[in-house]
Structure formats: structure tokens, C-alpha cells
Write a protein that binds this DNA or RNA. Structure first.
Lengths: 338, 338
DNA sequence: CTGAAAGCGCTTACAG
DNA sequence: CTGAAAGCGCTTACAG
């Protein structure tokens, strides 16, 4: 069975391909009777346009590229799901580019997406310094940078106020009477992790609590590093009574380590996470955490991109900074004896 | 800056576009000197082929479509990540189609993928009976059905042996001395859930344990339904000593409910999950579960599709059935008093 | 070893 | 209200 083309439809309906095209795209007034006949044939032959041909001619593919570090990370999966959803609502499909946090794979995807003529790109950077988005700009493909900031002035940006969120998470612990507050960090080459850590330090400073470098354990946003980080902290002579863990997966790992060591959370140790992934409310104890507005991030990113694509917005680039929200659950409580 | 085309390259290198094309695709012997000059210009002008043009001409897009119910479900996210990875290794990009378990959205994506001329499709069905994959076959687009069986003979298929896995999970509980074994099911319109439940019933029967319909609670694979299902089971007069929960997310919800009711897992209640998602080993107690070979599923599905695309395999369709593996952790133990 | 040219299936200025 | 035709950027049979 050969693919049905606009030519087949024109022939069958007894009109020109011009007319068929205009009926399909509603770009010209057509005699109602003609229009009806064409629509009938379109339906009868089960015509579907060839996007390759349309793209070649119009330069538009109705496709957006999504580059992100790892779709199997719950946070990015949720973001991807929402972007897919908003894109779909506006008639755009999404090509998925998993960078695996590998700058080489990331760059390869940048060129693939250009070759595939995506109309626009939502970019969540792999770790590291090198993010050469210029090929997109050279090809006039608009880019929205999300979640992780990139040292580049040419794109619209949607970010969380990670510094302030880190500050608030830490202040929550201070408000509960904690004074020896440890931190398990994320990768030190992505801005969310770095900025949350800055917020942690600012809160300590604002409340006159000395910053102790040995109360900081380096994690990588995977839960195993939370477990390992906590094991180390439990041996720390400073005996922290609370820990700010820079994402939920690691926080759950930290709780596991505390339980294995025979400690109770929060009675012996208060723990604050970050992200508010779906499972945060299901673990035991339910996790106190800084909620990321995932839906907002995805919606803003998609909308900003689509505004560019439809030339609704042509002025200079926007930076949207969204707030996180403290969700108090059962993994934090007032420090014993305070 | 205008996009660089093959014509620009030909002009700059002083050869025909035919030659440039053959250099790019390595489809003809070219004089080494000419070839070198062309490669130089290609590089110098930073040429990238226009896939729309190439697709229009060749009929191939080097793109595969991935239709799945929900990318924010950890299991599918992991599958998607692996498919993306294997696809990438073979030069294919992935267009993501989230059906949201909505047959209408699923059908819409089927047509979108056809219009976008994907070379092949990996299909994980939304719940329900209606999966009209014929448009793909009509357009000669090969399809690999994964994870959820579909009543259709035309595609290659990669599935887990869910019935046997359900049997083994239940037998594990029986081996531990449990005789009153409840079940929290998944959606009743997808084959994995239905078949795991069949395996559960077969195990009971094989060991002479009467099947009690009121020990079955209906879930939906989301953890909240595991929590709710367990709350109901705790009020059940039959007092189950073990529960087979048909996926891990619900199993974690079930553990949470047991803890909230003051019960200990596994001392008071043994729980077996299904999937072995990453977090299964991190929750407390670590979850005993049937591990799905996610990597195998994704690799088999991608490879079978690529074999079709490259006409390595043209004979009739294959059905690959993979086994699950019991991973015993800390959420199950010998029944008290047995 | 190389090139001129047809043609993939559309959209859209131009013409009437 | 409608149509003939150019042309988007490639690949590839045909010719030499």
C-alpha cells in the first residue's frame, strides 16, 4: 500500500494540489462545496501529511528538542512528562536527548537536533563548564535553559531560586533549635547544588553559627551517596543533630543509614530534603523537604519557547526565577533538650 | 547567517553536489584529493545535513517513536532511558509519546509518528482493549510491542513472564510458612497486572491454599493505592500474614500503612513487591521483590526494531519472553509461630 | 572517477 | 474562488 499524498487527494477530488493544501491548512477561502468534497476524500483515503516534505518547504518541523542529563532521574522524568504534555497541547512533539551528564554526548545531540531541524530546544545542562549552545543560535533555533544555569546570555532561562531555598531549608532547622547542622551536597559542577549549598552557608552565618567544613559530605544526587554521606556523618565528632540533604533521593538514603545505625528520625536526627519527589511523602518518616514547582518550571519553559517559535515575543531574553516551598512533614522536629 | 547547504559546499569546493553527497555518505569511490578538499570545506563551513530533505528523498528519518503510558513512572523512565541509549548508539533519535494511559492521546500519537515518518516504533500500550496499530503496518512502519501484550499478531513482542513471576513471588511467601496471603493488584486492564495476579492464584492452588477474594485489594500501580489497599487489608478479619503487592511503588505505600498502624515489617507482615526499582533497596525495610530485567527489555526491544529497520531480519514476528528474578531482602521473613 | 538532472511531497508567491 | 509552477535540500539512477 503506497502512501497517500496530496496529489492522490487532488486527483480523486478533481481539484489542484494548491486547493487541497489550502483546505488542509485553512489558509485560503475555499468554496464550501469544494472544501467539503476535499475533506471527504482526505478522510476517505486516510491522508496524513508528510512532515518531512512540509518541513523542507516551510522550515518548520513542529518538533522541539529536549536535552537533559538523565530521564531516569525522577525529577527530570517529571519535568519531561510535563514538557511533553504542554508541547503536545500546542502541536509539538518532543525529541528526547539524554546527555547522561556527558558533555560529548550532549554536544552530539546539539548537532543531531540541528540536523533534525527542531524548531526550538529546552536545555537542561549536563554538569561541567562547557555548554556550547552557539550552534543553535547560529541556526536561529531558540533555546530555553531550565533548572541549571549556564554562563551564556543568549537564551531565555527558567530557574529555581536555589540559594534562597537552601537558606530557608537551613533556617527551618535553626528555627527548630538545631545548631550543629550538617550538609550532604550534590555534584559540585551544577548550579542547583552549588547554590543550595551557598544558601546553607548564608543561613548559618545570618544566625551566627560557625560553618564547619567537616560537617559537609559530598554526594552526587543519587540515593546511595546519601546513605554513604550519612554513615560518615554519624562518625563525626561534632555529632550533628540535623542534616540538610540537597535532594530527596539522597535524603532517603540518609534516613536509611540512620535507621540502620539504630537512630530515630527525627527524634535523634532531623533531616530536610529537596525536590519533593512523589515518594517523599510516602517514605517513613515522611520527608520534610523544599518543594520544587516542577509543573511551573516545565510550563514556563515550554510556554517561553513556544512564544519565541510563534514570534509572540521577540524582545530580549527573559530570566524567570521561581521560589521553592518548604513542606514540613515528619523527618524534622525540635532539637531534644532545646 | 544562512544555513549551509550541500550546494554551498559544492560551490566552495569546486565540485558537483553529487560528489559532495557521495563524500558525506561514503557511497562512491572519490579521488582522494577531491575527497580531502570536500571534507575540508565541509568542516570549514560547519555543514550539517538537512534531515528533512534527506528524509523526503530517502524515506528514512533515523528516528524511532516511543509510545508509553507515563514517562514519570520510574519503570517506564528507566526503559525509556535505555531505549534512548541503545537507539543513540545506532544513530537513531527518539520521539517521546506519552499516552497518559489515554487511548485517544495514544491514537493521536500514532498518527503524529506516521506523519513524522518515524522509521519504527516501540509501543508500550495504554490500558484498555483498543490498540489500533494497523496504521503503522499500513505505512510499513515496523513496531515492537514491549511490556504489555496487545491482542495483535503483526508486531514483534518483548514481554516479561509475568504469570510465572507472580507464581514465584507467591511461592516465596508460601515457602516462608505463610498461608494467609493477600494481594494488592494493579490496573485490571493491562496484561502485566492481570498475569501476575494469575500467577498468584496458581501458586495458591498448587499449594492447596484456598483463594479468598476478599484478600484481594484493587490498586492502580501508584503508591497511594498501596497505602489505601493495605489499610483495608489491616481491617480484614482473615488477618493476612503476608501480602504480594504487584509493584514496588504500591509495596512501599503498603509498608508505610503498616508502619502507621504500628505493625512491623516483616515481623508482623511480610511484603513482596514487583519491579525492583532503584529505591526498592533503599526503603526501610529493604524490599523483597521480583526484579524486572529492564535493561534486557529495552535492549531486546531496540535491537529487534533495528534489525527490522536494517532488514537484517525479515521473517515472521518474534515473541521474546523474559524471566523475572526474585530478590530477597528484608521485607519478608518466616511466619511467626511456624 | 565525476556530473547533470529527476524527483521526494509539500507550501506559497504569482496570476487570473 | 482557483491553479500552474517554482523550489525547499537532499539522494540516486543514468550517462560518460
Amino acid at each position: 500500500m503506497k502512501r497517500v499524498t496530496i496529489k492522490d487527494v487532488a486527483q480523486e477530488a478533481g481539484v489542484s494540489i494548491t486547493t487541497v493544501s489550502h483546505v488542509i491548512n485553512q489558509t485560503r477561502n475555499i468554496d464550501p462545496k469544494t472544501k467539503e468534497r476535499v475533506l471527504e476524500v482526505l478522510n476517505q483515503l486516510d491522508y496524513h501529511p508528510n512532515m518531512a516534505a512540509r518541513s523542507l518547504r516551510s522550515g518548520k518541523t513542529k518538533t522541539i528538542g529536549l536535552i537533559l542529563p538523565d530521564i531516569s532521574n525522577l525529577f527530570f522524568a517529571e519535568v519531561a512528562r510535563k514538557i511533553e504534555d504542554y508541547g503536545y497541547q500546542h502541536g509539538y512533539s518532543v525529541i528526547l536527548g539524554n546527555s547522561d551528564n556527558d558533555p560529548v554526548k550532549q554536544e552530539s545531540y546539539i548537532h543531531t537536533l540541528i540536523a533534525k531541524q527542531v524548531d526550538g530546544v529546552i536545555f537542561i545542562a549536563a554538569g561541567g563548564e562547557e555548554h556550547d549552545l552557539r550552534p543553535f543560535f547560529d541556526n536561529k533555533i531558540p533555546v530555553v535553559v531550565a533548572d541549571r544555569d549556564v554562563p551564556l546570555e543568549l537564551a531565555d532561562v527558567v530557574l529555581l531560586d536555589n540559594e534562597q531555598a537552601g537558606f530557608e531549608a537551613t533556617r527551618h532547622l535553626i528555627d527548630l533549635g538545631h545548631r550543629t547542622i550538617a550538609c550532604i551536597t550534590g555534584p559540585n559542577n551544577v548550579t542547583p547544588s552549588m547554590q543550595r549549598f551557598e544558601g546553607y552557608k548564608r543561613a548559618l552565618q545570618d544566625y551566627g553559627i560557625p560553618f564547619q567544613p567537616d560537617l559537609v559530605e559530598a554526594g552526587n544526587f543519587q540515593f546511595m551517596s546519601g546513605e554513604v554521606g550519612m554513615q560518615k556523618l554519624l562518625k563525626n565528632p561534632h555529632k550533628p543533630s540535623a542534616v540538610f540533604v540537597l535532594n530527596d533521593m539522597m535524603a532517603i538514603g540518609a534516613i536509611t543509614a540512620a535507621h540502620k545505625a539504630g537512630l530515630s528520625v527525627p527524634a535523634d536526627l532531623s533531616i530536610v530534603g529537596f525536590d519533593n519527589i512523589e515518594i517523599a511523602s510516602a517514605v517513613n518518616p515522611a520527608l520534610t523537604t523544599m518543594a520544587q514547582p516542577i509543573d511551573d518550571i516545565a510550563q514556563k519553559a515550554t510556554n517561553m519557547l513556544i512564544e519565541r517559535l510563534q514570534s509572540i515575543r521577540t524582545e530580549e531574553n527573559m530570566r524567570v526565577i521561581l521560589p521553592a516551598q518548604l513542606i514540613v512533614r515528619d523527618s524534622t522536629c525540635i532539637r531534644r533538650g532545646s
